[in-house]
């Protein structure tokens, strides 16, 4: 490990529904290094989605500290959080979350547009990212004209295009058939080989098996294996 991408110290997250307090996460200590490929597993309701949202700065912890590339996320304003999400995190969702009325190219360009990258450079980088996921011939297609696997690859291109420190994938194969699942996982393997830091949330053992390290979460707490599992 050459460096630390993210570091969680005693991170907790609790919600209040009326008088009832729900602890979704409690006392999570976790460090992920540059270039690691980590899978987070757990049954539904275990808090894995909450953890992923905190890792992606979509949500902030109610206790403990979370540092992403050395920055204490808890101290940031909403605008700064938006910038962190834009520059440091690439999201891949189960539902793909592509904008239906935009072409693949425009979907991939979107984070660059929010980053203020000028038009021609935006286009060049988006085309490169689409090429990277093997969709050079589909740049002008809208999501409904693409298969599920292709849509997820567009979403991966969108996550890659800003060259983020961390790629977060939430059940990325949950809506895919087995062939598309294989394609997407092969793509993740390649990204990992190129030194990308990947965090994948899943409940499928065979998906998690591709990762370097598997974290299991249960009732809001991590059950960390003693040693990182090497492939």
């Amino acid at each position: 490990m050459t460096g630390v991408v993210l570091q969680l110290d005693a991170v907790g997250k609790s919600y209040r529904t009326g008088t009832l307090r729900v602890d979704a996460l409690r006392g999570i200590d976790l460090g992920i290094g540059v270039g690691e490929y980590v899978a987070i597993m757990g049954p539904s309701g275990s808090g894995k989605s909450t953890l992923m949202h905190i890792l992606g700065c979509l949500d902030t912890p109610t206790s403990g500290t979370y540092r992403l590339v050395g920055v204490d996320v808890g101290e940031l304003t909403e605008d700064e959080l938006a910038e962190v999400r834009n520059r440091l995190v690439g999201f891949v969702f189960q539902q793909f979350n592509l904008l239906a009325h935009l072409t693949a190219l425009r979907n991939v360009e979107l984070p660059l547009a929010y980053a203020g990258v000028p038009g021609d450079e935006r286009r060049r980088r988006a085309l490169a990212a689409l090429d990277r996921v093997g969709l050079s011939d589909r740049v002008g297609h809208r999501p409904r004209e693409l298969s599920g696997g292709q849509q997820q690859r567009v979403a991966i291109a969108r996550a890659l295009v800003t060259d983020p420190a961390l790629i977060l994938a939430d059940e990325p194969t949950g809506n895919l058939d087995s062939r598309s699942t294989r394609d997407v996982l092969a793509l993740f393997d390649e990204l990992h080989d190129q030194g990308r830091t990947l965090v994948l949330i899943t409940h499928e053992e065979e998906v998690a098996a591709r990762a370097q390290r598997v974290l299991r979460i249960h009732d809001g707490g991590l059950r960390v294996p003693a040693q990182a599992v090497r492939r």
């Binding site: 605008d79 938006a82 910038e83 999400r85 520059r87 979107l110 800003t162």
Partner: peptide, 15 residues
């Protein structure tokens, strides 16, 4: 959902 996605991709409230 679209608003959420745009925010996840880095849109600030002002945008």
């Amino acid at each position: 959902r679209e608003i959420g996605l745009r925010k996840a991709l880095g849109a600030t409230p002002a945008v």
